[in-house]
């Protein structure tokens, strides 16, 4: 046994550059975090307090009240767009969009990668051209199409047009191509047909990828703004993010703007996707950074 007191471990000198590194990171973290803390603080005080003093370093006692009014008090005329209703719509959009994207994308990618198909090249180009043009540049005609099909103010109209791009398909295609060739060969010798191979082997193998895709797509769907703004005009169909504009208009028009309620709604719009991203960080980062390869 060596006597530890006689051979003290040399203490690493405190390095200047290390302190700088941490300082810069802390400043960066604050830059990101302070706006959220401000929103959080104003949800705990009364509106009058906020207007008089602005955000302070005090936590008030109005959180419950603000939460209740955000969740159950409607802001429009119809009385339908309560926070709860918008939360539900946001969840329907986020989950519906993510599921739709994944299911349709996986099916198409499977067809493209694992089948001998005569018009495969044509299908490939038809599908992947959609990566080139974001929804924003074809928003008006898309609206007209939705209108013609009678999809305004429906969940179908909200979700399906957003699925009309190939991000998930592209991602799954890349992943399927990286799956060893021999796996499908072994499966064929083991007597698995195309459906069995997909369900027994490919889907279980893709679990992590599906999870990563789900997180990315959920956040993407939840955060949609322009399309929901156009396609939903009935207040009962508003999502939280779609409702933001109405909040800003409410704040403009009144004498005592309801900051507590509005900021609470903003907070409710922020938290679910942020929590998902934080909790499933490693999957999310993997999915995001690998999708460009």
């Amino acid at each position: 046994m060596t006597d530890t007191t006689s051979t003290p471990i040399a203490k690493r000198p405190l390095k200047w550059t290390h302190v700088m590194d941490h300082l810069i990171l802390i400043l960066g973290a604050l830059f990101m975090l302070v706006p959220l803390l401000m929103v959080l603080q104003t949800t705990t005080t009364t509106d009058l307090e906020t207007i008089k003093n602005g955000p302070e370093f005090v936590i008030g006692d109005q959180f419950d009240d603000n939460f209740m009014s955000a969740m159950f008090q409607a802001s429009g005329f119809s009385g339908e767009n309560t926070g709860l209703r918008m939360l539900m719509n946001s969840l329907i959009l986020g989950i519906g969009f993510a599921l739709g994207k994944i299911v349709i994308g996986m099916m198409a990618a499977y067809a493209l990668v694992y089948f001998r198909l005569r018009f495969a090249t044509l299908a490939f180009w038809l599908i992947f051209t959609t990566l080139l043009l974001p929804l924003e540049v074809r928003i008006l005609p898309s609206y007209e199409v939705a209108q013609k099909l009678g999809l305004l103010n429906t969940y179908t109209g909200l979700i399906v047009p957003l699925i009309a791009s190939a991000t998930a398909t592209f991602f799954f295609r890349q992943f399927f191509r990286s799956v060893p060739e021999e796996l499908v060969e072994a499966a064929r010798i083991d007597g698995a047909g195309p459906v069995k191979f997909f369900i027994d082997i490919l889907v279980p193998l893709s679990q992590t990828m599906i999870a990563a895709m789900f997180i990315i797509m959920f956040v993407f769907g939840w955060n949609q703004y322009l399309w929901p703004t156009m396609v939903t005009t009935e207040e009962g169909m508003f999502t939280l993010v779609r409702g933001i504009k109405q909040l800003t208009q409410d704040l403009e028009g009144t004498n005592i703007p309801e900051y507590g309620r509005a900021n609470m709604l903003a907070l409710i719009a922020i938290l679910p996707p942020v929590l998902v991203v934080i909790f499933f960080q490693s999957w999310f980062v993997k999915g995001l950074t690998e999708s460009d390869k």
Binding site: E182, E185, A186, I189, I201, L205
Partner: peptide, 20 residues
């Protein structure tokens, strides 16, 4: 005849075990 019906078994270079 389909590979599954040829009454054969195959061992692959990278083993091709189902990882899950």
């Amino acid at each position: 005849v389909d590979p599954a019906d040829r009454d054969i078994a195959m061992v692959f270079q990278n083993y091709a075990l189902y990882p899950h």
